[in-house]
């Protein structure tokens, strides 16, 4: 997994509430057995007109946000279906972090496993950042994970909280399965005890 250290880039505002993973990655892009080609599917019905041409009204089709590396999003982003394709697609589109007030649980874990940083702030703060990056001249920001801060274009710093476990995994780009398999003996010992106490599970 690609480590997340300090990232600088354009942030696109997309503040609608309850943006679900069906909207982020529609069904016609779910028919693969690999992760390829999903950048095209991201927000497909919003990004493209029926003709297939980019919809000029959508923020990710406008300068400078078509190069966005971050999204500033509304509450409950990523709700609905568990499809990790939504996160694979965002990542392929170049998105490295999302800033929002709340994220759906499965989406949250999916981002973490793919090295996409989710930053949770108060709703008012998110709106404020969203408004700030809505102007092309102030759309750029930096995120420093080590220092746990966002630096806006005018130099303002906004601190954020993150669990240390998540932070370390992102900073180091850790392979979660490899880390867990280092505890193989512990899992085996637990399993033996557990199945003895609950023999109907075995």
């Amino acid at each position: 997994m690609q480590p997340f250290l300090t990232e600088t880039g354009i942030a696109a505002p997309f503040l609608a509430a309850n943006v679900d993973t069906d909207v982020i990655m529609p069904k016609q892009f779910l028919k693969g057995i690999d992760r390829n080609g999903l950048d095209r599917g991201v927000f497909f019905d919003l990004r493209f007109a029926a003709s297939g041409a980019p919809n000029p009204e959508f923020v990710l089709n406008q300068a400078p946000w078509q190069q966005a590396r971050f999204l500033v999003v509304g509450p409950n982003f990523g709700c609905g279906s568990s499809r990790e394709h939504a996160v694979w697609g965002l990542k392929q589109l170049g998105i490295r972090a999302l800033i929002g007030s709340s994220f759906a649980g499965i989406f949250f874990d999916n981002c973490q496993r793919n090295g996409v940083l989710l930053i949770q702030l108060a709703e008012a703060e998110v709106k404020d950042i969203g408004q700030w990056v809505s102007t092309p001249d102030s759309a750029e920001l930096s995120i420093d994970l080590e220092q746990q801060q966002i630096v806006l274009h005018d130099g303002r710093c906004i601190a954020f909280e993150i669990d240390q476990l998540r932070k370390q995994a992102l900073l180091l780009g850790l392979d979660a399965i490899g880390s867990t398999l280092q505890r193989t003996e512990q899992i085996r010992a637990f399993e033996a005890r557990y199945l003895q106490a609950h023999p109907w599970v075995a």
Binding site: S82, I106, D109, A176, I177, T184
Partner: peptide, 15 residues
């Protein structure tokens, strides 16, 4: 509870 594909892989490999 629901999980994504990375977690399915983790679960398959480690229970």
């Amino acid at each position: 509870f629901g999980i994504g594909t990375s977690e399915i892989e983790h679960l398959l490999a480690t229970q």
